[in-house]
Design a protein around this nucleic acid. Structure first.
Length: 391
RNA sequence: GCCCCCAUCGUCUAGUGGACUAGGACGCAGCCCUUUCAAGGCUACGACCGGGGUUCGAAUCCCCGUGGGGGCACCA
C-alpha cells in the first residue's frame, strides 16, 4: 500500500469502565496506524473534573496492553506531542479560545446558570423546535467584555454559530452530512473553571497532535458539523472523519444499560475488557470478536491481529448499528484457543488451576492440555475439565 | 417535539446496475466421525422493510413512507 502514514488516536475520558466500543475504536485506529506505518496514540480527555474516576486511566492502558494494541504515545509512554492528558494542556486551550474570540468566531458569555435555566424553561414553554442560547452576550462590546473579565467576573467562551445557512461535514462512511445552522447552537468552548469542553479540546488536540484520521463513535454525529465549523474557524485542515456505528444490546433495542451488563455478567459475558480477561477470554478471541462488529469481511473471518493489519480498510467499515452477539464471542474465543500451541495454552491455563488451589506440575499440565483443549470456550473452563487430573 | 444517522437470513455481514438460483460466519436442526461430551466434516432451514420512479435491466441509483437507532448540558 502506498498510503501515507496515518496518525490515529483513542481519546477516552477517565469517567467509567473501558468497554467494547472503546476497544473497537482503539482496534481500528491501531490497525490503520500500523498498516500505514504511522502512530496510534492515547489521549486522556479528563476535562470533566466532576466525573473523574481515579484509576480509570490505568484500566484503559492495561486493557489496551492486554489486547495487544498498545499506543506508542500516551501519558504513560510519553511522546513528542505531549502532554497527553488534557488537564495538563489548559493554557493551550485558553490561548486557542482567545484566538477564536479575536477572529470573531467566539465570544465571552457572562450569563449565569440560573439565567440559562430560565431561558431554557421559557423556550420549552413556547415549544420551540430547538432550545438554544438566546445570544445575549453575543452582541456585547468586546472592550466592555475585556474590562469585565479583567475585573474578575466569571465567564465562559461560546462559539459564534452562524444563524443562517447550512454546514456540510464529510464522514468517510456516510458522505456529506448537511445540517441547517439554526439547529446548532452557540456551544460552550471554555468552561468557567478554565477547562475546555470536548468540542474545543478534541479539535485543538487533534490538530496539535497532527491526527490524520479521527475514528470516534457515531454518537458524535449530531455535533459533527459543529466540530467542522471549529476547524474551519481556526483555518486548519480537516482530518479524515470516520464514525463507526454504535453498538446495540443483544436484542438490538438500544444501547447497553446497567441492567443489560448485569444480565450479561450472569451468563459469563461482559462488555468490559477487564471482565473479559478475568472470565477467561483470550485477547485473540476478543479482538476477533470486536473487529467484526461493524467491519464487513466477505469470508474467512477468523483472523489474528497481524492478519487484520494486513486486511483492514476504513472503506469496509459499515455505517449501520450492530447488535452485540455473545455467542459469537464464545465461538471466536474457542477457535483462537485451539489455534494456540500446547505450550502457550498450558501456560495460560495454569493460573486458573493454581488459582483454585491445585498443585500443577508442568509435565502433567502439558499432557492434560491437549486432552481438554477441544472443549474449552474460555480458559476458565479448564477448571471444570482438568481439575480431575490434579490435586 | 425537533435534528441527524441507519435499513440484506434471528444476529454480524458480502454485494457498489446484468456474473444473484442473493454468498460467508454465528446460532439452530440433522447426518458422519466418536465409548460419552466436545472439536472437526457434510447437509438443511433461513433475508433484499413497503410504495413509487429512473433503466432494456435494480438488493444495488432517486423520491416518499414505515421501522430502528442516536443526539438535543459550563458531560464526553
Amino acid at each position: 500500500m502506498t498510503t501515507k502514514p496515518a496518525r490515529t488516536r483513542l481519546a477516552p475520558s477517565p469517567t467509567g469502565r473501558f468497554h467494547l466500543a472503546n476497544a473497537r475504536n482503539a482496534l481500528y485506529s491501531y490497525l490503520l496506524a500500523r498498516q500505514t506505518g504511522g502512530q496510534f496514540i492515547l489521549r486522556i480527555e479528563d476535562t470533566d473534573q466532576k466525573r473523574f474516576v481515579p484509576g480509570a486511566e490505568e484500566v484503559i492502558v492495561r486493557s489496551l496492553d492486554w489486547l495487544g494494541i498498545s499506543p506508542s504515545e500516551s501519558p504513560f509512554h510519553g511522546g513528542p506531542y505531549g502532554p497527553y492528558r488534557q488537564t495538563e494542556r489548559r493554557e493551550i486551550y485558553l490561548q486557542r479560545a482567545q484566538l477564536l474570540v479575536k477572529g470573531g468566531h467566539a465570544y465571552p458569555c457572562f450569563c449565569t446558570s440560573e439565567r440559562l435555566n430560565e431561558m431554557r424553561k421559557e423556550q420549552e414553554a413556547r415549544k420551540v423546535d430547538r432550545v438554544r442560547y438566546d445570544g445575549t452576550c453575543r452582541v456585547l462590546d468586546p472592550d466592555d467584555s475585556a474590562r469585565r473579565i479583567a475585573g474578575g467576573e466569571k465567564y465562559i467562551i461560546r462559539f459564534k454559530m452562524p444563524y443562517e445557512g447550512t454546514t456540510t461535514a464529510h464522514d468517510h462512511l456516510r458522505g456529506d452530512i448537511i445540517i441547517e445552522n439554526k439547529y446548532l447552537d452557540d456551544y460552550v468552548l471554555l468552561k468557567s473553571d478554565g477547562l475546555p469542553t470536548y468540542h474545543l479540546a478534541a479539535i485543538v488536540d487533534d490538530h496539535e497532535m497532527q491526527i490524520t484520521h479521527v475514528l470516534r463513535s457515531a454518537e458524535w454525529l449530531p455535533t459533527f458539523p459543529l466540530h467542522v465549523q471549529i476547524v474551519r474557524a481556526f483555518g486548519w485542515d480537516e482530518p479524515v472523519w470516520v464514525h463507526p456505528s454504535i453498538m446495540l444490546k443483544p436484542s438490538g433495542k438500544g444501547k447497553m444499560s446497567k441492567r443489560d451488563t448485569a444480565a450479561a455478567m450472569k451468563d459469563g459475558h461482559s462488555i468490559f475488557i477487564d471482565d473479559l480477561n478475568e472470565l477467561g477470554y483470550i485477547p485473540e478471541g476478543v479482538l476477533n470478536w470486536i473487529a467484526f462488529m461493524g467491519w464487513g469481511v466477505a469470508e474467512d473471518d477468523v483472523m489474528t491481529l497481524d492478519q487484520m493489519v494486513e486486511r483492514f480498510s476504513i472503506d469496509s467499515l459499515t455505517p449501520s448499528p450492530a447488535a452485540i452477539n455473545f455467542q459469537k464471542l464464545d465461538h471466536f474465543n474457542g477457535t483462537h484457543i485451539r489455534l494456540l500451541t500446547i505450550e502457550d495454552l498450558a501456560a495460560r491455563i495454569k493460573p486458573y488451576l493454581t488459582g483454585a488451589g491445585l498443585e500443577v506440575p508442568h509435565e502433567t499440565l502439558l499432557k492434560v492440555t491437549p486432552l481438554i483443549r477441544e472443549r474449552l470456550v474460555t480458559l476458565d473452563d479448564s477448571l471444570a475439565f482438568a481439575t480431575f487430573f490434579f490435586k
